[in-house]
Simulated assay, not measured.
Amino acid sequence: MSEGADPREPKASELIGEALGTAARRAGLDPSSSATTGHVVWKAMGGWRGVVESVLPSLIFVVAYTVSRDLVVSLIASVGIAAVFTVVRFAQKSPPAAALGGLIAAAIAAVLSLLTGNPSDNFVPGLLTNAAYGTAMLVSALIGWPLIGLAAGYLMGEGVAWRRDRRKRRAFFWLTIAWAALFAVRLGVQLPIYLSSLDPANRESAVALLGTLKIAMGLPLFAPLVAVTWLTARALYVRRAATPDADAADAPR
């Protein structure tokens, strides 16, 4: 261990902060940026391309299944459009991560639905993702290492020094709790509908409702919370830049 290192500081914090911070920077969420809030949020959603890539596979699946009642045809249509998005990104030499991730998720969902014969299983990966993200956010906040703080600390080059500032600790705690609540709300609303689809009599209505809710509770909830997170983080660090001694004044004694 290097001289002056805090033995109580978990070594994983730097790795997690770096990973989260790098992802946030790639998404345009850098508190030091002078971009407008609208620009930041739009970039985080991936612009028009990101919106279309996020919404269209689920929309096509729901429409195709509602019209045809054919699970295989609906899955082929959904996975096919995700594959097209990925191929286009590779052809244009643009970052393929988002489209490739969507393709992998669509393929996994398709395999699961084919194995069970339940079209609502197409939404299971999304339910699991919300459960995992929500749990990670909640646990990180409760143990005093909120993931939003780790990402912001890496982006601003201060590591975990923000933990010595009560103002930042509170802000990052509540921001992380807000993200946990977003994932929990999605799961709380959609899971009962999925469970109802286990009864074959409810499957057709459940597919349409789950597809609608996935879209309605996706970007429309994601965008405002991105804006709040970015504005809060930027305000914290703007204040620090304007008053260098603010952190020391707020530090626990």
Rank of each mutant, 00 (worst) to 15 (best):
S2N: 10
E3C: 08
P7F: 05
G17A: 03
E18Q: 10
A19Y: 04
A23T: 14
A24C: 14
G28D: 07
S32M: 12
T36R: 14
T36K: 11
M45G: 00
V63W: 00
V63M: 04
V63F: 05
A64H: 02
Y65E: 05
T66L: 10
R69D: 13
L71P: 04
V72G: 10
V73A: 13
L75M: 11
S78C: 12
F85H: 13
V87E: 08
R89Q: 11
P96I: 06
P96Y: 09
A99F: 07
G102H: 02
G102T: 02
A109I: 06
A110W: 01
A110C: 05
V111Q: 05
L112G: 01
L114V: 14
N118F: 05
N118G: 08
N122C: 02
F123V: 07
V124T: 13
L128Q: 12
L128C: 14
N130M: 01
T135E: 11
G144W: 12
W145G: 00
L150M: 11
A151P: 01
L155K: 04
G157V: 15
G157T: 15
L175V: 08
L175F: 09
I177Y: 02
A178I: 07
A184V: 06
L191V: 10
N202E: 10
E204L: 10
E204D: 12
S205R: 13
A206I: 06
A208K: 03
L209Q: 04
G211S: 05
T212F: 10
K214E: 00
K214N: 06
G218I: 02
P220V: 09
P224T: 15
A227C: 12
A227K: 10
V228G: 00
V228A: 02
W230Y: 15
L236N: 10
R240C: 03
A242V: 04
A242M: 09
T243H: 13
T243R: 09
D245P: 05
A246S: 10
A248H: 04
P252S: 05
